[in-house]
């Protein structure tokens, strides 16, 4: 994949560990770019196991949630597994309020995710 602007991707064995460079995921252009970089992971790079590490993320908008939902759908279509980790209590509340904690597989830590992928 081309050098990502919004994501830091570390490939480990068959697992892609993705971190977000933006602390606040709110800017529409940034969300669009971030979404495309995520989509490229499964559509161009054919990654099948992905960990999304939210350690650096302090805030995200509903528009960012929408992009994550689209990514989850694409991942499901391509047979890719995805786990979200290191989510702060405030952002976890955002997932819980919108019931997205039931859509996404969420683990406390990256190690927990790697252990089950």
């Amino acid at each position: 994949m081309a050098s990502p602007r919004r994501l830091q991707v570390n490939e480990s064995a068959s697992i892609s560990v993705v971190r977000f460079k933006d602390q606040k995921i709110i800017d529409p252009v940034a969300i669009q770019e971030l979404g495309q970089e995520l989509f490229d992971l499964i559509e161009k790079d054919d990654r099948k196991k992905i960990v999304l590490n939210f350690d650096n993320v302090e805030f995200l908008s509903s528009a960012a949630l929408g992009k994550l939902i689209t990514f989850e759908k694409k991942a499901k279509r391509t047979g890719a597994q995805m786990i979200l980790t290191n989510i702060s209590p405030e952002i976890y509340q955002v997932f819980a309020i919108t019931n997205l904690d039931k859509l996404f597989k969420i683990k406390d830590s990256e190690a927990d995710a790697l252990a089950v992928l």
Binding site: S61, S62, L65, G66, K67, I69, T70, E72, K73, Q93, V94, I97, T98, N99, L100, K102, L103
Partner: peptide, 22 residues
């Protein structure tokens, strides 16, 4: 209702639920 289990995979429409909750 964005939280309807049948609508969880539809992007968008979550802002109202978040504002109401917060």
């Amino acid at each position: 209702d964005c939280c309807d289990p049948d609508r969880l995979e539809i992007p968008g429409g979550r802002g109202l639920a978040l504002m109401q909750a917060f």
